[in-house]
Design a protein around this nucleic acid. Structure first.
Lengths: 267, 267
DNA sequence: ACGCAAAAAATCGTATGCAATTTAGCTACT
DNA sequence: AGTAGCTAAATTGCATACGATTTTTTGCGT
């Protein structure tokens, strides 16, 4: 209706409507089992709403759904072949994560973070990621480091590839680095918080990112791992802060108030 | 059925079912408006599910609802005079905050954090609260300090009083101190996170707290404010860490595996 | 033609109903 | 008497239905 991205959305949802192929891609997707299992572990089978939520979240994080896109309950329900009840539940869930904003009697939209929200998201990351890094470094095992390195490799490989799907996978891998550190820290609560922050960061970058280049400086991730291996925690934290600052520096967070008024033409 | 606390629960819900008297107590309840308003502010009128969610959350945080209490959808719906749909939505919402755990096809229960979860909650607080403190100190105004002091006064007053309601209000006020710092920091995301952590801390203390005394050392709050006023940030952070450690030290986090097995009788 | 008002369509908020799963109670059998 | 197995009750998962609110369209008057 208002966004031509709607077709990308439709495509995605058609694909995601087959619930059996939720995560068919490369193998490092489920690395957070070890912490999460302690928390739910019970039935493994996700309830319908959760599957829909996960599918939509993935679509948002991988930027197949653009900020501002309307997600009407009926549309979502139809596309997943479920009732509005489940669609609504999924959208509500996403609103708690800050990925969609539901406005009373108006509907749900892919979140459109304001510049101020964007700043707060990165401020939060600067606040928590060094701490997570320290916790992670204290508990990290050689196996963990190997897995981190593997993730890096994958990221690099995707970086060199061309095409939309590679770009999307790269975005995901880049975020997964930060998530994996949180996972290693062994704190499920911080992991969940980081998931939220990384997901919302993706939205912010989609909105305000300037460089067409990758979202994360790839080499910086490697440097951080190296510093951890050298037991140079202070340096690792410093690098992490620089890394976050680097991402943020690529944003143009000036308020652009829809530029729909006269300025758009009277320039 | 399994918990005699059920009567307390019923009592509470009967009381809370009158939506007009949600917050009749002392005046400092809505201090987080200034940040939150930017985020929702739109319609002010909460949807029914949100009201129920807030009421139940308050009941949990103030420990009128004990961990493990079953919250069946029909019961909640009946007590608030709404349909199961709304009750369900409220319970789902609370599960995202970690205050209730919903088990598939079995129902919702007031969360019963494991000792490990408890440790993670406090680890998270140690990780973020110093950072929040630093942010808050950088932006704090004399008016903020006055408000903090007022909160302290209120807390002290309630501490000397007797009775259940005073105790509950004291619990709330004690948490509000930490929340107010987050609010002053100006970061709505961190504020929301802290709300979750404080709420879950209340659950943990209810479960594992030993001392019958107050949950928070009252004087420690005052010391932190003083350190902030003296621009001694390092000391303020140190005090904050000590304060959190102090709360945690009052817990008995030994795994008591429902003590239902033989040990309970073969002692 | 343009703007405004009223009707129509679309969409959301909530309640109710039915199928599926879990829990309990009861009978029968060892 | 104790336990296994089966049936019935309770509870959740999900879909459908209806009233309320918002948005769009239509029609009229100027």
């Amino acid at each position: 209706m208002q966004f031509s991205y709607y077709f990308g959305y439709k495509y995605r949802l058609t694909f995601a409507a087959k619930p059996d192929m939720v995560c068919p891609s490369s193998g490092n997707q489920n690395f957070m089992k070890s912490v999460v299992k302690a928390q739910q572990a019970e039935d493994s089978a996700e309830t319908g709403a959760q599957q829909i939520r996960d599918a939509i979240r993935e679509a948002i994080v991988e930027r197949r759904l653009s900020p501002g896109t309307k997600l009407s309950e009926s549309d979502v329900g139809n596309l997943f072949n479920v009732s509005r009840t489940l669609a609504r539940a999924a959208l509500q869930a996403l609103s708690y994560e800050g990925l969609v904003s539901v406005e009373k009697n108006r509907g749900a939209f892919v979140a459109y973070p304001s510049p101020d929200e964007a700043r707060q998201i990165f401020a939060a990351r600067r606040l928590v990621e060094p701490g997570i890094l320290r916790e992670a470094a204290a508990r990290i095992t050689p196996a963990d480091i190997a897995q981190l390195r593997q993730l890096l490799l994958e990221e690099g490989r995707l970086m060199s590839e061309r095409g939309q799907t590679a770009r999307r996978a790269e975005i995901k891998a880049s975020g997964d680095f930060h998530l994996m550190l949180a996972e290693i820290s062994g704190n499920a609560i911080m992991l969940r918080f980081m998931e939220e922050l990384v997901a919302r960061s993706s939205l912010v970058i989609a909105l305000y990112g300037q460089s067409t280049a990758s979202s994360c400086g790839h080499s910086e991730h490697g440097d951080i791992i190296a510093a951890i291996e050298n037991d140079d925690l202070d340096r690792a934290c410093q690098l992490m802060l620089h890394h976050i600052a680097h991402i943020e520096a690529d944003l143009d967070l000036r308020e652009r108030k829809s530029l729909g008024l006269k300025e758009a033409f009277e320039l």
